[in-house]
Design a binder for these strands. Structure first.
Lengths: 205, 205
DNA sequence: TAACATATGTTAGTGCTTCTCACTTTGACA
DNA sequence: TGTCAAAGTGAGAAGCACTAACATATGTTA
């Protein structure tokens, strides 16, 4: 019994692949992380999945749709990680906001290729409604925590405003750190300290 | 007397162009803004500049170098705009920091293609030392203003920390606004209010 | 169980891309 | 004015996304 039977197979065994769609998404993810979004080619993904270069077009309309599918999968993982990061932190604590922020940055640093495809506007076509919707979903989680911290039971305009500030900050931080390999500020960035400080400042009256 | 004689000519007149390097940079800029970074092709730039597709390689090593040259030019423009935005605002005022932030966001919204090429990590090759250096130069301006606001005469570690926070925020804001076409937060974003609020919060003790 | 319909694969090829090579034109200066 | 380097050209190689026509496997139904 090989891996191929237990989890999504990357390469096919016989004439048919079994689940080429999933195989190609995984191949796409790996290659994007390895070579960057612009270094990705459909041909490479085909080689990795062990199929001909025409095969993907039975599952995706074009290259862009392959990337969108991969990014959507990544965003779901991203969102799940964020929710999981809240575990064990008391409701209403700014530490919950900090934890969300940290998980956000962590994802950007762990999967920079996916992160950039989603947010960097690599492809105009990636400014996709599905991706926007997935982003909103994640933002709603943040807003819920911000509301708790501010003692609000609803998502008031002020809650949105503060949430938006936090999101902007964490978003920018992710890009800068991913870009600069943390060499900014003359050395290591105290990520935890920075996030905690920001959460406090933005959530203060 | 046509434009061609007064400013950088885009198309050539005779066999030689006159300043093909500058012409190609300008063509690149226009096309990147028009079609997005990934929709840009060297061939298109050649057509726009009125030369054969082999001509650029006398001036640039490859496509990437063309993009880098264009972005470097854009960053200089960007930095000049920021410095100009300080004009007339009293030294030491947080309004100076706000003005820098606003100009930063404005550039991102005015030239989103250039902005994304610089910061979005479109091409791994664009993670170029020259671009990083140009970014640092701009950041130094911010740090100077932050120091003034905090009553420091030097760029202390705390000044760097606060400047980094502000940069992260403004950077993220730029991406989000450029991405979302301002449709977030259920409507228009009060950019001035947001920037002023953030400057106050981050510059507070 | 045989046959068909359909999903999913392949091969071959088109047109576009970046980039190279050998060649041509031009302007500047000795 | 003659020469030479700089800056252009055209043709073509290699690689890309994508298509059309064809091949193979699968599962439902007679």
């Amino acid at each position: 019994m090989t891996d191929q039977t237990t989890k999504t197979p990357l390469r096919k065994a016989g004439y048919h692949h079994g689940d080429l769609r999933a195989g190609l998404i995984e191949a796409t993810r790996r290659l994007v992380e390895e070579n960057g979004p612009d270094g990705f080619s459909v041909s490479d993904a085909c080689a990795l999945a062990g199929v001909s270069t025409a095969a993907p077009y039975k599952h995706f309309r074009n290259k862009n749709e392959m990337l969108v599918a991969m990014v959507l999968e990544g965003m779901e993982r991203h969102r799940n990680n964020m929710v999981a990061a809240l575990d064990g932190i008391p409701p209403g604590s700014p530490l919950r906001v900090k934890a969300l922020g940290k998980e956000y940055v962590t994802f950007a640093l762990t999967e920079p290729g996916v992160f950039r495809l989603k947010f960097g506007g690599f492809t105009d076509g990636l400014a996709d409604d599905r991706l926007k919707a997935a982003g909103e979903l994640t933002f709603e989680i943040v807003l819920g925590e911000v509301a708790s911290c501010l003692g609000e039971s609803d998502i008031t305009p002020e809650v949105r405003r503060r949430g938006f500030m936090l999101w902007s900050f964490v978003h920018g931080l992710s890009f800068i750190l991913a870009d600069a390999d943390m060499t900014r500020m003359g050395g290591e960035v105290d990520l935890d300290g920075l996030l905690e400080d920001i959460a406090k400042r933005v959530l203060a009256d």
